[in-house]
């Protein structure tokens, strides 16, 4: 029971990270139907920016988090403008390959810039452990959860209560109709990339303070898994990505906690395959069929 509770706590922390990355995947897919493979690498860049701000500039946690989010938002928009906008009407596979190209570029570009070695994140937050009924919770885990929930609430507010949020929902529903209604589709797509990238950056900084170690290829696996989380919840659906992220984090923590840590990665993909076969539209998705 203690193991279970402990892994649940760990799973929620890990799940927060997945959920934050999954949100960007899902929002981008919802609006341009592109699996943005470079998204995991934006998260990696976010982690490095956090490292730069705390270790080199000596900033504290919050300013570092904000700076990383802003810079990655800009990075997301630049990627979209340079690499994806010209391909909006090209075959899907061309856009997908470009996304993988951007991903490689970020990974190995970063490797050139900072060398492939693993960096240790500075202890910006001194670890404090709290014990309840034999279960350990650290202040870092609390911060991860608090930041994640705060960002999710903010995102819900943006998507449902602001003009740009309404525009995003309209464009994801029907690009042409939105355009005819006077919505600037290009700006809306840019904004979606910016928001998604900022969330990934936040996840990167949080992972830095949680695991203390970052490297240029750190985005690949969490990127793929966050994508699994997005599919699990139903791609294009924001609450789906949140739920999927937490679920995946918890499942992984359980698998590790019960001594099968090497099976962690395959398990995530087995979940993916099961969901794709049983309900490809995800837990929250609706079925649409092709009109004949």
């Amino acid at each position: 029971m203690e193991v279970f509770l402990q892994q649940l706590i760990n799973g929620i922390s890990l799940g927060s990270i997945y959920a934050l990355i999954a949100l960007g995947y899902t929002m981008v897919y919802g609006i341009v139907q592109l699996i943005n493979f470079a998204h995991g690498d934006v998260y990696m860049v976010g982690a490095y920016l956090g490292f730069f701000a705390t270790a080199i500039l000596g900033w504290s946690f919050l300013p570092a988090l904000l700076m990383s989010m802003v810079v990655c938002a800009i990075l997301g928009m630049v990627i979209e403008k340079l690499a994806y906008t010209p391909l909006r009407n090209a075959p899907r596979i061309a856009a997908l390959i470009t996304a993988i190209g951007v991903s490689l570029f970020l990974e190995y570009g970063m490797m050139l810039l900072v060398s492939p070695q693993v960096r240790t994140f500075p202890q910006v937050l001194t670890e404090v452990q709290y014990k309840f009924f034999g279960v350990v919770i650290t202040n870092r885990q609390v911060i991860i959860l608090v930041v994640t929930v705060a960002l999710m609430l903010l995102l819900q507010y943006i998507v449902h209560k602001t003009m740009i949020g309404k525009a995003m929902r309209a464009v994801s529903h029907d690009k042409q109709a939105a355009q005819l209604m006077g919505i600037n589709v290009n700006n809306t797509i840019s904004a979606t990339f910016a928001i998604g990238s900022a969330l990934a950056a936040a996840a990167g900084v949080l992972v830095g303070i949680y695991y203390n170690a970052i490297n240029p290829l750190m985005g690949i696996m969490p990127g793929l898994k966050a994508f699994v989380a997005a599919v699990l919840g139903g791609i294009g659906i924001i609450p789906g990505a949140m739920t999927g992220g937490f679920l995946l984090g918890i499942v992984e923590a359980m698998v590790s906690g019960y001594g099968k840590s090497l099976y962690r990665d395959p398990v995530a993909f087995v979940i993916l395959i099961i969901i794709l076969i049983v309900k490809p539209t995800g837990l929250f998705g609706k079925n649409v069929r092709e009109k004949v």
Partner: peptide
């Protein structure tokens, strides 16, 4: 080394564009 994949990636993006 790493530059190889950067060049490779850029080439890919350019061809796709």
């Amino acid at each position: 080394a790493a530059l190889r994949l950067v060049i490779y990636a850029l080439l890919l993006i350019v061809v796709m564009l």
